[in-house]
């Protein structure tokens, strides 16, 4: 069997990113869009930690960056869910196609 290396993790990250991107583009439920965004952020974290593990001289930088990504993701999720609940209260739905107040 081939030894697992950086390229394995990077391809896994790319696959996870494209799945998340598909979810962001195709989900109609805003909660579904948020869940797909979390998948995107997770794929980026895999790439960061894999590079920190395999690329010379990276040290702990990859893991520290991934920590910050997790922190920002938590903040993003809380604000987005609050926004979503406000939209739901206003319109009775969380359909991304019904939120057209800012559409020109």
């Amino acid at each position: 069997m081939i030894e697992i290396g950086l390229s394995h993790y990077m391809v896994l990250s790319a696959v996870l990113f494209s799945i998340g991107l598909y979810g962001v583009l195709s989900r109609r439920n805003a909660v579904g869009v948020l869940m797909s965004v979390e998948l995107l952020l997770n794929s980026v974290n895999i790439a960061l930690i894999a590079i920190g593990r395999y690329v010379g001289g990276a040290g702990a930088t990859g893991q520290v960056f991934a920590l910050f990504v997790i922190t920002v993701a938590a903040a993003e999720a809380s604000v987005a869910l609050a926004l979503l609940i406000a939209i739901y209260r206003d319109r009775g739905a969380v359909d991304v196609e019904s939120a057209t107040a800012l559409q020109g």
Partner: peptide, 20 residues
């Protein structure tokens, strides 16, 4: 997905020495 995979596989990572 295909573009990222291709770019990651083609990239010249400074792997090996010094990696933790």
């Amino acid at each position: 997905g295909v573009l990222f995979s291709y770019a990651f596989l083609m990239a010249n990572w400074a792997s090996g020495k010094g990696a933790a």
